[in-house]
Write a protein that binds this DNA or RNA. Structure first.
Lengths: 249, 249
DNA sequence: TGGCGGTTAATGTCCGACATTAACGTTGTC
DNA sequence: GACAACGTTAATGTCGGACATTAACCGCCA
């Protein structure tokens, strides 16, 4: 595979190779699933050293444009995983000291929209999953840790039911960043019952296809969470912390 | 710099190196701005070959955790740029055939929230920038291309005025994906005047600090856009196209 | 058809080398 | 003393080549 190496900006060769391949992929000349030539071929076809090719591949791997099953050797073109890339936003957000308020505002924009869309598009499977989640929640009222996990799952299920992959992807990093503060809030007075009620109302609205109601209950639910946050004497303007176990990638 | 290479999952060494460094950065042991040892040192300190180190560096570069000014040699730790990473979502979204409707729903969730927040937090500079933008818009009513550019800028300025970096980052990829369709819609009847009016109303609300009004006009504005889209006989369920000049990275 | 063993060849890693040119220390100037 | 010009050092980008490990593949046999 001969590449069109463009040294205009006299970039290092490995970068030119990465760009050339990226280009071919974005333009559709190389399609996801397609197999890429072996390193030695890529190298000799372009009269460059294999190490140089390898460095290019490393870059493309991180972009998700090229993939190798772990332990395998065959190299494939791939469409980057939106969710995976979206989650990478967590790191810079935390490192840049994004505040809890910013996060809350963002989720407060996305989740009510998701609830609304879910009320319009939910399938039976979606409803089933949501009901399942609520049943588990009901059974876990005494267990804050479990509640946190279930609440996060509930919101994710709604995003799925919304049938909107963009919203689903965008809310991922924020949802993850919520994790730590959930813990703190969930111990607050009546928090669990209020949470359960809200979830039930939301599900009901979604089931009935009442988009406005779904949106409103979701908004209420998030407002409630915010109040709990403040009641717990936490400061909305504190920077968000890295969610546990998200330290690794 | 000795790294704690962990071969538990017997990953290739270059990946272990990347992970070890990433860990050090995420944990704060290595801080953004700090200088990293040169390749040869990293190599000898860990008894591995320089090529192996280089492959690790390539990966971290793409993650944005490590940076080298183009043409320079000094390697620094860095906090990944949220906006840059966010924009990477464009590629997978397009490759996965995200529909225009999904995009519209997402921006319709974020931008009204941004307008609302902007009404509360806008600074004089923000207002100045917005007024500037509107003045230019007024002067460009006959020029669809310019209008598109200005409209996108307007929305971005609002996100900036909102003082919410999360929303600002998340809306980037969607905003970019809007670009192509804007072109089509902007030629519609009265589109430019309606756009200008909406922008004016939004700015006014923001100026007065009327959050509800700001949100509502933004929502109207977006709805209007959607109508224009349908009037132009375009299909909301068509997959979004790659914005021009975003083909390269 | 499907499992098995043998062969081939691709990856991960290393050694070593060299041209280019940042990076840096020194010296000299104003 | 700040700063510019100069010379030296050394780090990067790239290359040639090598080798162990083991996926990947092929053909045989049940």
């Amino acid at each position: 595979m001969k590449l069109n190496l463009n040294n205009a900006d006299n970039l290092p060769i490995f970068r030119q190779v990465a760009l050339a391949l990226q280009q071919k992929i974005l333009v559709g000349e190389l399609q996801p699933g397609e197999r890429l030539p072996v390193e030695t071929v890529l190298a000799s076809d372009n009269s460059i050293h294999r190490s140089t090719v390898r460095e290019a591949i490393r870059s493309l791997e991180q972009l998700g444009l090229v993939r190798r099953e772990p332990g395998k050797r065959k190299l494939f073109v791939s469409a980057p995983d939106t969710q995976e890339l979206s989650r990478r936003l967590i790191t810079p957000m935390v490192m840049n000291g994004v505040t809890f308020e910013e996060i809350w505002e963002a989720i407060s924009a996305l989740d009510p929209a998701a609830a609304e869309a879910a009320a319009r598009r939910r399938t039976l499977d979606d409803l089933k999953a949501l009901e399942d989640n609520i049943a588990q929640t009901r059974a876990a009222l005494g267990d804050p840790d479990k509640l946190v996990r279930l609440d996060i799952e509930f919101h994710e299920l709604i995003a799925i039911a919304a049938g909107n992959r963009v919203i689903q992807a965008l809310r991922l990093p924020i949802s993850d960043l919520f994790y730590p503060s959930f813990q703190a809030v969930m111990s607050g007075l009546n928090a669990s019952e209020r949470l359960l009620t809200a979830h039930e109302k939301i599900l009901q609205a979604i089931k009935w296809g009442d988009a406005d109601e779904a949106r409103e209950w979701m908004a209420k639910h998030l407002n409630d969470f915010r109040k709990g946050y403040e009641l717990a004497s936490l400061d909305m303007s504190d920077p968000a912390a890295l969610p546990p176990a998200k330290v690794k990638d």
